[in-house]
Design a protein around this nucleic acid. Structure first.
Lengths: 168, 168
DNA sequence: CGGTTGATGGTCCGAAACGTACCATACGTG
DNA sequence: CACGTATGGTACGTTTCGGACCATCAACCG
């Protein structure tokens, strides 16, 4: 019996989408999508599947030659756990850690902070817009698109905000 | 020599604002302000000041009677460290962990998710608006108000978003 | 072809953070 | 005064973190 954390469900969810995946593949997928609004360090994407496999949620297939990579796929138990988790809506709130806002709150110079933060958010906004285009082309689910749209909304808000700060 | 993390600067910054503070006081202050956009567990607000005191950033005064609470205040070294940190603008991006968006991305039912998330964000929006009023009355710095306004902006965005999802 | 480089893919591990259960003090109220 | 509740604090086992480092592979160049 192990306890399943959000990290666990990210792994289960991604493996479910992919059918079968190596940790590196998970890393890529996470970076492109869910990693954007639920950050997790890459080392966990190696550790966690192993843990889940031990506990019977995933099965492993190891390459014979070359890199001997491990490919993970769902077992019935994993599929069940994922489905159960998806069934229950959550009222939990996000957690945020924004170093820029932190410095601002403590009285760091607003103008120079804004000129450091603004380009970063502008780039991220473009990144999400591009991602949305890619997802649409690739025929993603409506939910996947929604999530990216949420990211776009927040980045627009950030851009507005730091522009306001710069001009204040 | 210890390394200073964002947590360290939160402690230094709050102590600086208060002049002198107990861990419990820090907890309160954090909950009301910076904790809203840079989460940190309360146990750290007991551990971290101790660490900073050991390393010469803070001085401690311990109550004689009763609870023998510890009051922390800045030393020159702490003041310097804080000032230096505030001087350098940061281009670092936030980190976000949003369980709601995570479930949505993996295909959880959008409608029921929205009806769980919407009220939470609506309440938080009201909370920020109230906080802003309090800060204005208490004569907070313009930066402190800006940060709360940023929170308001994001919560408005969340409310818009989940309403859209509910109606989609 | 051999060698160098850069991208891909992966492991490890000490240090830091987490979170939660639990303990202690104070105080207002019936 | 005793009971409940808010205040205030500690301790500690378990997870996470993050970053340094290692290995494989393909491509291109001299």
């Amino acid at each position: 019996m192990i306890s399943l954390t959000p990290t666990s469900y990210i792994v289960l969810g991604l493996v479910s989408q992919a059918g079968e995946a190596t940790p590196y593949g998970l890393k890529q997928m996470a970076a492109a999508t869910v990693g954007n609004f639920f950050s997790i360090p890459h080392s966990q994407l190696y550790a966690e599947p192993e843990r889940l496999a031990q506990a019977g949620y995933l099965k492993v297939r190891r390459e014979e030659g070359g890199r001997r990579r491990k490919h993970y796929a769902l077992r019935a138990r994993g599929r069940r756990a994922l489905a159960q988790w998806l069934e229950a809506p959550t009222a939990e709130l996000y957690e945020l850690r924004d170093p820029g806002l932190l410095k601002l709150a403590f009285g760091s110079d607003a103008r120079s902070l804004a000129s450091a933060q603004l380009p970063v958010h502008e780039e991220r906004l473009r990144h999400f817009q591009e991602l949305l285009r890619v997802l649409e082309a690739a025929g993603a689910t409506v939910e996947q698109r929604l999530v990216v749209e949420s990211g776009i909304g927040h980045e627009r808000e950030y851009v507005r905000f730091w522009k306001k700060v710069a001009g204040a």
